[in-house]
Amino acid sequence: MSYEKPLPGVNPQPRGHFSEHRVNPNISVPGTITFVLGRVSDAPLQYLIFTQGWAVKGLTAVGLRASNLLITAGPGVAGLGPIPTLLTGMYAVAGLRHGYWVLFTNTYHWPPSAALQVVAYNTVLNTVNTLVAVNALTSSPYPILGDFTDCMGWKQWAGLALFAIGISVEIIAEESRKHFKKDPRNKGKIDDTGLWSVVRHPNYLGYTLWRAGITLTTGSLIATAALTVFQVLAFTSGGIPGISGYMSAKYGQQWKDYTRRVPSAIIPGIL
């Protein structure tokens, strides 16, 4: 058995309760429903923030430049311009990814309160990205004429690449661990195969990458750097210490041996 993925980017529960949350074998139906509905509704919410002028009103209220015209100008889908269309698509894919995870990959208890925290965390980050994108579009150097790809710059292409890589890393890590745990021969063992032999938390690496990819797609390098640093700090100060304490108590020397073989927590050779 290997350790599970706690709240993406947050660890709101006290250390003592953390292990209790993890070892509960019963799947919470209300929690799962809350998790799925909350995550898949995020993309429609962001679409409304774009199209109903809420982002522009919020930004202008604090003295920042924003234009409704630039949100809708150029080739896109459902009344959105190219970059808002791309961002909304990313939000949708990430929400569906989380929904799939909690329905088909997850094996432990998610009470509604914990599910709501995951939903709120991701919704807040995506709302910030939406606001950053609207502000960045005000001075966007990219054309609004031509086909969809003509309206994308290197930041959007790089963001899309990071997003795809991050989602893939997260999926591969979680699914490979699921199969490892299903094998009776691995009972009582820590998963140190595949991506888990490279870093101790490849799912966190994947999450950080696709989060950075979304923010880079907004066109703001400053926001991308800030989000990436914030996310890494959130993991290293919250989720990872909780997991380490749980794993150390459960596996003892096996966990110590694993951390020696795989010293990097998130970023290979760095952190």
Rank of each mutant, 00 (worst) to 15 (best):
G252L: 04
L195R: 11
G213S: 06
I240E: 01
P143L: 01
T215C: 05
V169P: 04
V169Y: 04
Y258N: 11
I190H: 06
N129P: 12
G252I: 02
D191N: 15
N135K: 05
N135A: 09
D183L: 08
T218W: 00
W157T: 06
T224L: 00
H201V: 08
S168K: 13
G146C: 08
I240H: 04
S168C: 12
A161V: 06
T130L: 01
T215E: 02
D150H: 07
D192M: 15
V132K: 05
I240S: 14
P184W: 07
Q156L: 03
W154P: 07
W154M: 10
S220E: 07
D192C: 15
D191R: 14
S197E: 04
T193F: 06
I240C: 12
S248H: 08
T127F: 07
V169N: 09
I243H: 10
D191E: 10
A161R: 00
S140I: 07
I190Y: 03
W210P: 00
V128R: 10
G219E: 02
V128H: 06
K178Q: 15
A164R: 01
D150M: 02
W154A: 08
E175I: 15
E174I: 09
K256L: 08
T149C: 03
A133R: 08
S248C: 05
D257V: 02
G213I: 03
G188S: 08
Y142V: 11
N129W: 03
K181W: 07
R185G: 15
T224R: 01
T130Q: 03
V199D: 02
R211I: 10
P241S: 02
W154C: 06
G245Q: 09
Q253Y: 12
F148M: 01
P141E: 01
L160Q: 07
E174C: 07
R177N: 14
F180Y: 13
L209R: 02
K182M: 15
I165C: 06
N129Q: 07
R185I: 12
I240W: 00
W210H: 05
K250I: 02
Y246E: 13
I165Y: 03
I222A: 10
I172S: 07
R177W: 05
V199C: 04
A164S: 08
I240M: 02
A164P: 03
K182Q: 15
W157K: 00
I190K: 12
I171M: 12
D257T: 05
G242M: 12
W157G: 01
T130H: 05
L160W: 07
V128L: 08
G252T: 13
G159N: 03
Y246T: 12
I144A: 11
V132Y: 01
D150E: 06
D183Q: 11
Y204S: 14
Q254M: 10
